[in-house]
């Protein structure tokens, strides 16, 4: 009894410490935030007897007291751009990308842990609850090693900035001065919370203590998300500056500097992207462990782990293109020219590569789900229909990756009769591409629905009606998506973008309504046979590795696109890049650089996985009993 009370006190103290750590940066910042930057500047000016100088915010168009120096006008020399005998931009690109890969991984994994631990707490089935708990513990163990590496890479990144771009870094850190130390203190809070969360796992495994532990994961993720939002405000400021006048002088309102035109779209897009990326990396880890497994029991465990990670990753991948559309819409609203550079100008071919990668992600996901049906009896009934899904995916994919115009020789141009192919040219416009990607996503939803009912037969009295309704709903959804895509050809381009909204609504209707209907139909369903975890082809695991690699590559690509759209500006229209590397790289060089980054990340993350495998200790030992091994056991849920 005394031990239990002791544990409770320990847990509550730990949680209070975390909340304290979370509030620490705010408390430390209160004096400067309460006094306000403007007052400082105003007081300083009054003391000198000067007239207070005011400036006009370049974005918000409000007036503010000038509280900072103008953006430095750099020159191509060792003063502003000290260098090694190598392109500084490439070194910075490498350091930045590696830090970002690891940063997004260690921010995503605790969110997974929170979701999986919560599933374990609310699950009625004790054996399944322990399996979820074990899985969450496995996840956090992986991220702990990666966390140290993230901090090291962050240090390398800062040194790279200070050494190679001192003028730029000095200006940016000056603008964000009121929140720079908050960012640093957030790291203290994040580290403290993560270590208490990880090392407290054993002591807080039951009842009330488990809820305290779960609350810690919420605190951990709040800190992690705030950290990311602050980091996003820097890149938001570089793309769409606000809170400064046209000379780049800070006007005293830090909220304007943080809350730029692109900040919130970037926040949403990055949260979803991090989650999908984290899911992909963990799924690849599980696939690697599955392929290396010696026993059926291990194979079953890692098969299940791979499935859960993939399902969580794809759950965030599905809304990701829509968040991307919002981001692009805001880019166009902020500066139309910037949008045109991205989608129809200098960087347009990179978007074709992006479309190719998105297609690969969805194709890999579908392929994995079709293979995964092999681990359940009763799913054979869907096998003969898969070829139709392949046809739909292939059609959607081909439309999605068709470029608007090709780079051609005069002879080729003449042979084709113009810049655009007479038939295929029609598929190179956004109207067709919106239709293509929505068909792909809807097909992925359909694959998921089939997978979820693979080994079950509905026993509800309206099962026949439910099945027919589901078929009709998907059929009408496909028709509606294609109808709206065709409609787009009959209206001007500037209003055509409005058609993407009902298309997205159609896809999301399929996602939410059909998942809900399927859940109702499968309540108390008859099981045709158990899910035989571990009984899956090796090909499926390579699909998971493909999924993760494609994701890593695409993150590198999109980071490059987002960065290079600033062209020759460090801070768009405020601080010019006068280094010898202000030009935009060729597509080929960029692709090679992205590939090198991906390769380096995967080599190092394999090292992290190997380090994690050295600590073979598994906390809830009893959970092993719940993992179905060579003898198939009924899995009560997905």
């Amino acid at each position: 009894m005394g031990l239990l009370v002791g544990k409770r006190i320990f847990s509550i103290v730990a949680l209070c410490m975390m909340v304290g750590l979370l509030l620490l940066p705010v408390v430390v910042a209160l004096p400067s935030l309460a006094i306000g930057e403007e007052t400082h500047a105003g007081d300083a000016a009054k003391k000198d007897g000067d007239k207070v100088e005011k400036g006009r915010d370049v974005y918000y168009k409000t007036e503010g007291i000038v509280s900072g120096a103008p953006a430095p006008k750099t020159t191509d020399g060792v003063k502003d751009y000290p260098r090694y005998n190598f392109e500084s931009r490439v070194l910075l690109w490498f350091a930045n990308q590696q830090h970002l890969y690891y940063g997004s991984f260690v921010l995503a994994v605790p969110i997974f842990c929170m979701i999986i631990e919560f599933m374990g707490v609310v699950t009625k089935d004790k054996a399944l609850a322990k399996r979820y708990d074990q899985l969450a513990y496995d996840f956090i163990k992986i991220s702990l090693t990666a966390y140290s590496l993230t901090a090291i890479l962050g240090g390398i990144l800062i040194f790279t900035f200070l050494t190679l771009y001192p003028a730029f870094f000095s200006y940016l850190s000056g603008i964000f001065r009121p929140v720079m130390h908050i960012y640093a203190l957030m790291f203290v809070a994040e580290s403290g919370t993560l270590y208490i969360y990880y090392y407290g796992w054993d002591k807080m495994r039951e009842g009330f203590l488990k809820w305290i532990h779960l609350s810690m994961s919420v605190v951990l993720n709040v800190i992690g998300t705030l950290l990311m939002f602050l980091a996003n405000s820097w890149i938001g400021f570089m793309m769409s500056p606000a809170g400064v006048d046209e000379q780049g002088r800070y006007l005293g309102n830090i909220w304007h500097v943080i809350h730029t035109a692109l900040w919130n779209p970037l926040n949403l897009h990055r949260i979803l992207g991090n989650m999908a990326f984290g899911g992909g990396v963990v799924a690849a880890y599980a696939a690697y462990k599955f392929l290396a497994s010696k026993t059926d029991e291990d194979r079953a465990h890692y098969d299940w782990m791979g499935y859960i990670a993939m399902a969580l990753g794809v759950a965030f991948l599905i809304p990701l293109p829509f968040a991307g559309y919002w981001l692009m819409r805001e880019v166009y609203a902020y500066r139309q020219q910037m949008g045109i550079t991205l989608m129809g100008g200098l960087l347009a071919w990179l978007f074709i590569i992006q479309a190719t990668m998105i297609g690969i992600l969805f194709l890999s996901t579908n392929y994995y789900l079709w293979q995964a049906m092999g681990r359940m009896r009763g799913a054979e009934k869907y096998q003969r229909y898969i070829k139709y899904l392949v046809f739909l995916l292939a059609c959607g994919y081909m439309v999605f990756i068709t470029p608007h115009t090709m780079v051609m020789t005069p002879a080729e141009l003449k042979a084709m009769g113009g810049q655009q192919h007479p038939v295929l040219g029609n598929y190179g416009v956004m109207s067709a591409k919106n239709g293509g990607i929505n068909v792909i996503i809807t097909t992925t939803v359909l694959s998921f629905v089939w997978y979820m009912r693979g080994n079950k037969v509905s026993t509800v009295s309206w099962a026949k009606f439910g099945n027919i309704f589901m078929g009709v709903f998907f059929g009408c959804a496909y028709f509606n998506i294609i109808f709206l895509a065709v409609y787009g050809y009959y209206i001007p381009a500037n209003v055509r973008v409005g058609l993407s909204v009902p298309q997205v609504a159609t896809t999301l209707s399929c996602l939410f309504f059909m998942f809900a209907l399927n859940s109702f139909m499968m309540k108390g369903a008859k099981q045709m046979g158990p899910i035989e975890w571990g009984k899956i082809s090796a090909r499926s695991q390579y699909a998971l590795i493909m999924l993760a690699t494609a994701f890593t590559w695409m993150m590198g690509l999109m980071g490059y696109i987002r960065s290079s759209v600033r062209l020759f500006w460090h801070v768009n229209e405020i601080m010019r890049d006068n280094s010898p590397w202000a030009y935009t790289h060729t597509v080929g060089f960029a692709a090679n650089m992205i590939s090198a980054n991906v390769l380096f990340f995967w080599i190092t993350i394999l090292f992290v996985f190997w380090l994690g495998s050295l600590t073979a200790k598994k906390v809830p030992v009893e959970s092993k009993a719940g993992i179905p091994g060579s003898v198939p056991q009924p899995a009560p849920s997905h």
Binding site: W462, A477, N480, P502
Partner: peptide
């Protein structure tokens, strides 16, 4: 409920509900 399980009736009812839903959604959002 048994009438709804008749394939023809199920198909007609499903089509009415689904087509009606998508027309309303498209109409409203456009």
């Amino acid at each position: 409920m048994s009438a709804l399980n008749n394939p023809v009736i199920a198909l007609v009812v499903s089509l009415i509900i689904t087509v009606g839903y998508f027309v309303l959604v498209d109409h409203y959002l456009m």
